[in-house]
Design a binder for these strands. Structure first.
Ligand SMILES: [Zn+2]
Ligand SMILES: [Zn+2]
Ligand SMILES: [Zn+2]
Ligand SMILES: [Zn+2]
Ligand SMILES: [Zn+2]
Ligand SMILES: [Zn+2]
Length: 340
DNA sequence: GAGTTTGAAACT
DNA sequence: CAGTTTCAAACTC
């Protein structure tokens, strides 16, 4: 198992350059076929495993087979595309943030990964590092797989076309929308059940969704709200930072508490310093409160001014509480739970 | 991890 | 084409 994995890595690094770069036809969700006339035949060869003579390992070759002047989509081309991508689409590392663009393993159990239910198959990829059971989406079942591709294309000639239009090079946002549209009924198109929402695009008139909250105007409003929240969050945090003197500041109030003059820790009592009471936890708790306040106000159709007012009020409350606690000259003043 | 919800794909 | 079933992922607890 492990040995085979290593060997496949070797194959990947040896041969991918024979194919055109995948970036030409990678798109969200699905692959589009490269603009090429050449049809390749994929050959499977059995060869001894490099580190284990008994075990068979696979190597794949691409051989020019024919030329098509039409460029018409057929299952052989899909086949080739799949192989290209199986080489070029990076496997999803076991754990990593921002998995965008990386193939994520499927978990199919009943489709043999030969129906569009399977994301790997639907993306024109071979299953690799998947958790599927009884998987036939690999070169061991080349014929069956080709038949399945052909079937899928018969049912829907667009089956392997990208569902979301590719943003053309120069034109931004041109038609980066769902081509067929969704048919959501209960998600308001606000959960990843919705293909539009999942692709981070707005629903359009192509969609036949009911009670949609993923229209273009919905998205704009949401973005504005988020940016307002973020800016207020940053403002709050920076205000607290300035107040604590952790910022190099030219303001009088900050320089009054400047730490520069005192070289030694003992020279001035830490308890007289703002930063002693405005530790990271306190700042974080305060920020959390402010964000929570923002969230509350967000629901009541808030003009942005009202929002800022409320947040400022909450900020004043926080500062007041912090000062109260700092005046209790106890040993670990700031360690008490401030917001209970 | 188990159980539920969801909507695309498949089927009739 | 419409109605139903199947399926795997998204989600919930
Ligand atoms: Zn699968
Ligand atoms: Zn898979
Ligand atoms: Zn599979
Ligand atoms: Zn939707
Ligand atoms: Zn939609
Ligand atoms: Zn919608």
């Amino acid at each position: 198992m492990i040995e085979q994995d290593i060997y496949l890595e070797e194959v990947e690094s040896e041969e991918p350059s024979q194919f055109s770069s995948s970036t030409d036809f990678l798109a969200y969700g699905r692959s589009s076929l490269p603009a090429t006339n050449t049809i390749y035949r994929i050959e499977k060869e059995n060869s001894a495993h490099p580190s284990n003579g008994k075990q068979e390992a696979l190597t794949y070759k691409n051989l020019p087979l024919a030329s098509s002047s039409t460029g018409q989509q057929n299952y052989e081309m899909v086949h080739r595309t799949a192989y290209q991508q199986s080489l070029s689409v990076p496997r999803r590392p076991s754990k990593k943030k921002s998995n965008l663009g990386l193939k994520k393993p499927c978990n199919c159990t009943k489709s043999m990964c030969l129906k569009l239910y399977c994301d790997c198959f639907a993306n024109g990829e071979f299953c690799r590092d998947c958790n599927c059971k009884d998987c036939h989406n690999n070169m061991d079942y080349e014929a069956e797989r080709s038949r399945a591709i052909k079937q899928s294309l018969e049912r829907n000639p667009q089956a392997f076309q990208p569902k979301i239009g590719v943003a053309p090079k120069g034109q931004l946002e041109a038609e980066r929308l769902h081509q067929k549209g969704c048919h959501c009924k209960k998600s308001s198109c606000l959960k990843n059940y919705c293909e539009c929402y999942e692709a981070k695009v707005a629903c359009t008139d192509r969609c036949k969704c009911t009670s949609c909250r993923n229209t273009e105007s919905d998205r704009i409003a949401k973005a504005q709200l988020a940016s307002a929240r973020e800016s207020s969050r940053v403002t709050s945090a920076s205000l607290l930072s300035v107040a604590s003197g952790s910022c190099i500041s030219t303001t009088a109030s900050a320089s009054r508490f400047s730490d520069e003059e005192s070289d030694s820790d003992e020279r001035s009592d830490p308890k007289t310093r703002p930063w002693f009471y405005l530790r990271d936890e306190v700042i974080e708790a305060t920020t959390t409160c402010l964000v929570a306040q923002a969230d509350e106000l967000e629901n009541s159709d808030s003009a942005e001014e009202i929002l800022e007012h409320g947040i400022l009020h909450e900020f004043a409350n926080a500062i007041r509480k912090i000062i109260e606690h700092s005046q209790m000259a106890g040993l670990d003043v700031a360690q008490q739970d401030l917001f209970h």
